[in-house]
């Protein structure tokens, strides 16, 4: 369990004081993947670096399983750091060492004997899918492979927590997904707590259980990923969610909607949101069977996979001679626990 309590961090810069992090309260449960999303400069890096004592809070406390990190120094801090792995945007591998030697590096720091070191590093190289590349130098690897070395290295001392500092931001989309899948499977296999900071909502959607949105040093929204995707409250969260669900092309949808409305003046435009198992049920066709007088055209729809299940949205137009039939259909959808949002009544 990771606990941020009233954490603030102030830097003294030439232009005066900079509040990088302000009054952050956060609880991160064990074994989960927790995402912190924000634009650059929002204070995400400062926040995550407090977890391994690369930064210290100006006020407040950071506690991991009862140990206050913000109160440690010297040997106690170094011993704590051994239990926390970290991966970086630019990998930060030692170019002078081969893959296997890079993975051995944290084990050398922990003074593990040579024989065990080699065995462990070999095992980890296989775990992250680098078997056969053990003796390559980082300069001979692709970005994705480098990050795999980074992950193996971070796992070397059997950490309780893995910190990921924009670990996929320097990778292409395909490689990003491979690395994210790897992180997910490691989280499941080793039951490891993972803290991810990123500016990409894609990362949050793909692997995180919970998310906190950081804006100008403050947490403006937090909760389970599916909830935040379904009902983003803050403008910044909506922007992040749109970035991922692609409803940024809502403008196109609006055009289609107005066209449909002029064609079918009696139509009603509705946005349906499905989640979890509902996305798999034939709810719409069941609705049509129950209200045969209602006609339906689909305007736009999409389904996204998140860690807690599928999240679908569907824009439809409902047309009927009798307004009651439409109201009844909408009521039926609501009883099926589909979220219904009427955008325009004709």
């Amino acid at each position: 369990m990771i606990e941020f309590k009233d954490v603030s961090k102030t830097f003294n810069a030439k232009e005066g004081q900079v509040h990088a992090v302000e009054d952050v309260n956060l609880n991160i449960p064990d074994g989960k993947i927790y995402g912190i999303v924000g634009y650059s400069g929002a204070g995400k890096s400062t926040l995550i670096r407090m977890l391994n004592g690369l930064e210290f809070p100006t006020t407040g406390s950071v506690t991991i399983n009862g140990t206050e990190i913000s109160g440690l120094s010297g040997k106690a801090l170094r011993n704590q750091r051994l239990k926390i792995g970290m991966i970086f945007q630019h990998f930060n591998l030692l170019w002078s060492r081969t893959v296997i030697e890079n993975i051995e590096f944290p084990l050398e720091i922990a003074k593990v004997p040579k024989k065990q070191r080699v065995e462990k590093a070999q095992h980890l190289a296989e775990l992250v899918g680098l078997a056969g590349r053990e003796n390559a130098y980082p300069s001979e690897l692709s970005g994705g492979q480098k990050q795999r070395v980074g992950i193996a290295r971070a796992l070397a001392n059997d950490p309780e927590i893995l910190l990921s500092d924009e670990a996929t931001s320097a990778l292409d989309p395909q490689t990003t997904d491979e690395v994210l899948d790897l992180l997910l499977s490691i989280n499941k296999q080793l039951n490891l707590t993972v803290v991810v900071i990123t500016h990409e909502m894609h990362v949050i959607r793909k692997i995180c259980d919970q998310v906190a949105v950081l804006d100008a040093g403050k947490i403006v929204e937090q909760g389970p990923v599916l909830d935040v995707f379904k009902r983003p409250q803050q403008t910044i969260t909506k922007r992040f969610v749109n970035q991922e669900t692609g409803s940024s092309n809502l403008d196109d949808t609006t055009v289609v909607v107005s066209e449909l409305l002029t064609k079918y003046s009696n139509g009603v435009i509705v946005k349906l949101t499905f989640h979890g198992d509902q996305a798999k049920l034939p709810i719409v066709s069941e609705m049509l069977r129950q209200f045969p007088d209602v006609d339906l055209s689909i305007i736009e729809g999409s389904i996204h996979q998140t860690q807690e299940g599928a999240l679908g949205s569907l824009y439809i137009q409902l047309i009927a001679e009798q307004q009651d039939n439409i109201n009844g259909a909408l009521e039926y959808l609501k009883t099926m626990r589909v979220e219904v949002e009427v955008i325009k009544r004709g």
Binding site: R81, N92, I109
Partner: peptide, 9 residues
């Protein structure tokens, strides 16, 4: 790289 080493203790 130096920071990575620090973060490993």
């Amino acid at each position: 790289v130096i920071e990575a080493a620090q973060s490993m203790g």
